[in-house]
Design a binder for these strands. Structure first.
Length: 463
RNA sequence: UCCUCGUUAGCUCAGUCGGUAGAGCGGGUGGCUGUUAACCACUAGGUCGGCAGUUCAAGUCUGUCACGAGGAGCCA
C-alpha cells in the first residue's frame, strides 16, 4: 500500500484535480454535523494539512465522527476544488480507514500551547505546527551544510564521540566508563584506577572535534566534521544544551582571510538554501515567531560582511557614548551587549571581528606578528551576536609548544596534535558553528530546547 | 552556580482585605448539510507543587525544598 505524501499532493494539486488519491496522516482537527464532516490531516511531509470532506454515505460514518485529534487515518478519495475560503482544494472521501484511534487524553489541543508545556510532551510536539516546521527546517539545514561542503570538495570526517584526550579544553566533560561506581578498582594511592576501565584510560564524550579534524586536514586539505558534542557545564540558559551539534570545517594551505570567506559564503548559502526550500515554514516563522525574521535573513544573505579588528572595535565602543553594563577595555572579552551594538548599530549587518588579544583566546590560535594578538575571528550577526568563532591555527611547532607550556597544559597530552606541526605542517584555519544556534537564528526560535528533538539540559533527560 | 519571577482542573489562566475554588479551551453526552481554533445545549473533572510554621481560619502570610522560566556567568 502506498499513500501519496501531502508534499506531493500540494505540488501536483492542479494536475491531480478530479482524480482519485490515497493519503494517510494524523488528524489535526475534526468537525462534524449530522451527515457530513470535515477532517484536517497532516502527514508531516508538508507545512499545510489537507481538508477531508466525508458524508454519511461512507460505511463507518459514526465511528469516524467520533475520532479525536491525533488519530491516524488513511483516506481514499478524490481531489476536488474546495468551496471553502481557507483552501483551494480538498479530498472528497470515498472511504476512511481508522488506522490508529487516539485516546481522549491526547495532550495536544487545537489551540496554542506554551513552549514550556510542549517540552514536557517532547514525544508529541513534532505533530504541532511550530515544531513540525522547526524539525523539517532542522533536517533541511543539515542538508544545506552537507551540500555546501560536499559541493566544494570537502571531505566529511567522523571525528570520535568518545575521546581519550581530556585536553580539548572547552569546559566540563561527561565521563565514559564501565567501572562500577560503587566499587571501582583503586590504585595504591586510593584513586580510581582507570587503567582497569574499558579503554584502559580515562575517556569522555567529546566537547569538540577540532583537534581531530585538524589532523585530517593535513591529509585531505579541505575537511569538515559535523556531529554531536557534549558539555557537562551547569548552564541554565536558552542558548545552552548539554548535547548539541557542531559544524567544524578546516582548510589547509589557507589563512584567516580564506577562513572568513568560507564562513561568509557558508552563512549566505545556508540561508538561501532554507529560504528557497522551506518557504511555507519560513513564512510561518516570520508571521508567528519573529516578525523581522525574513527581512533580517535577506539582509544577511545579500550584504558584504563587515571587517573590524578587535582593537578598532574597542575604539568604536569607547567612542559610542553608550554606557554598557560591562566596561569596555582592551584585553577583556566582548560581551553580548558589545557584540550586538557593533553588528546592529554600528555596522547594521554581519561583521567579522579579528585579531583578538591572545590572552582571551585558545592556545591553538596563530600568533600575529605584533606578539599581542592572535588570528582569531568571530562572526557577529544582528539579532543574536556571535554566530561563528574561528581562527588560523598555530602551525609553528615551537610557538605552539611555548603557548602550551605558558598556559600550564601538559605537552604529553598533545603529542599527536603537535606531531602534525613536525610532519609537513602548513598554514591552516577553521571555524566552529553551533548547529542548533544556527537553527535558532534561521527560525527565530529563542530557546535551544525548542529546536532540538529531545533536548538534554541540566536535570532533564526524560525522553 | 548566582539573581529575579513563577507553580491553582488535562491545557491557558483568574481568584479582591486571610473566611473551604472560577472561566475559556479540551473531555463526555445530545443537536446541527459546507465547516476553518466551527457552532448551540447539558455534564464530569481540584490534596491550590511538597513539607513545616503563623492564625479561630491559609490558594492567599512566613520559612524551606523541588521543579519551571527569564537574566548573568561559561560558551557553541
Amino acid at each position: 500500500m502506498s499513500y501519496l505524501l501531502l508534499k506531493d499532493l500540494f505540488k501536483r494539486s492542479s494536475e491531480l484535480m478530479d482524480t482519485p488519491v490515497s493519503i494517510a496522516g494524523w488528524i489535526r482537527t475534526l468537525r462534524v454535523s449530522k451527515n457530513l464532516g470535515f477532517i484536517e490531516i497532516n502527514d508531516g511531509s508538508f507545512f499545510s494539512g489537507v481538508q477531508i470532506v466525508f458524508q454519511d454515505t461512507i460505511p463507518n460514518f459514526e465511528a469516524v465522527s467520533k475520532l479525536g485529534t491525533g488519530s491516524a487515518i488513511a483516506v481514499n478519495g478524490k481531489v476536488v476544488a474546495s468551496p471553502g475560503k481557507e483552501q483551494a482544494f480538498e479530498i472528497a472521501a470515498d472511504a476512511i480507514e481508522i488506522v490508529g484511534a487516539c485516546d481522549s487524553d491526547y495532550p495536544l489541543q487545537k489551540k496554542r500551547h506554551s513552549f514550556e508545556y510542549m517540552r514536557t510532551i517532547a514525544h508529541l510536539r513534532p505533530r504541532s505546527n511550530t515544531f513540525s516546521a522547526v524539525f523539517r527546517v532542522r533536517s533541511l539545514l543539515a542538508h544545506a551544510i552537507h551540500t555546501f561542503f560536499q559541493d566544494r570538495g570537502f571531505v566529511y570526517v567522523h571525528t570520535p564521540i568518545i575521546t581519550g584526550s581530556d585536553c580539548e579544553g572547552a569546559g566540563e566533560m561527561f565521563r565514559v566508563t564501565t567501572l562500577d561506581p560503587k566499587t571501582p578498582p583503586l590504585t595504591d594511592t586510593g584513586a580510581v584506577d582507570f587503567s582497569k576501565d574499558f579503554f584502559g584510560k580515562e575517556t569522555n564524550l567529546t566537547v569538540s572535534g577540532q583537534l581531530a579534524v585538524e589532523n585530517f586536514c593535513m591529509a585531505f586539505r579541505n575537511v569538515y566534521t559535523f556531529g554531536p558534542t557534549f558539555r557537562a557545564e551547569n548552564s541554565n540558559t536558552p542558548r545552552h544544551a548539554s548535547e548539541f551539534w557542531m559544524i567544524e570545517p578546516e582548510i589547509a594551505f589557507a589563512g584567516i582571510e580564506e577562513d572568513m570567506r568560507m564562513a561568509e559564503d557558508m552563512t549566505k548559502f545556508i540561508i538561501r538554501f532554507v529560504l528557497e526550500r522551506a518557504p511555507e515554514e519560513m513564512k510561518f516563522f516570520n508571521a508567528m515567531i519573529d516578525k523581522g525574521l525574513l527581512e533580517r535573513l535577506e539582509l544577511v544573505a545579500s550584504s558584504d560582511f563587515g571587517r573590524v579588528t578587535y582593537t578598532e572595535a574597542i575604539e568604536l565602543l569607547k567612542k559610542s557614548g553608550r554606557t554598557f553594563e560591562y566596561p569596555v577595555e582592551w584585553g577583556s572579552d566582548l560581551q553580548t551587549e558589545h557584540e550586538r551594538y557593533l553588528t546592529e548599530e554600528v555596522f547594521k549587518k554581519p561583521v567579522f571581528v579579528i585579531d583578538y588579544p591572545k590572552e582571551i583566546k585558545a592556545f591553538y590560535m596563530r600568533q600575529n606578528d605584533d606578539g599581542k594578538t592572535v588570528a582569531a575571528m568571530d562572526l557577529l550577526v544582528p539579532g543574536i551576536g556571535e554566530l561563528i568563532g574561528g581562527s588560523q591555527r598555530e602551525e609553528r611547532h615551537d610557538l605552539l609548544l611555548r603557548r602550551i607550556e605558558e598556559l600550564g597544559l601538559k605537552k604529553e597530552d598533545y603529542w599527536w596534535y603537535l606531531d602534525i606541526r613536525r610532519f609537513g605542517g602548513c598554514p591552516h584555519a577553521g571555524f566552529g558553528l553551533g548547529f542548533d544556534r544556527a537553527l535558532m537564528y534561521l527560525t527565530g526560535m529563542t530557546n535551544i530546547r525548542d529546536v532540538q528533538p529531545f533536548p538534554r539540559t541540566p536535570k532533564n533527560a526524560e525522553f
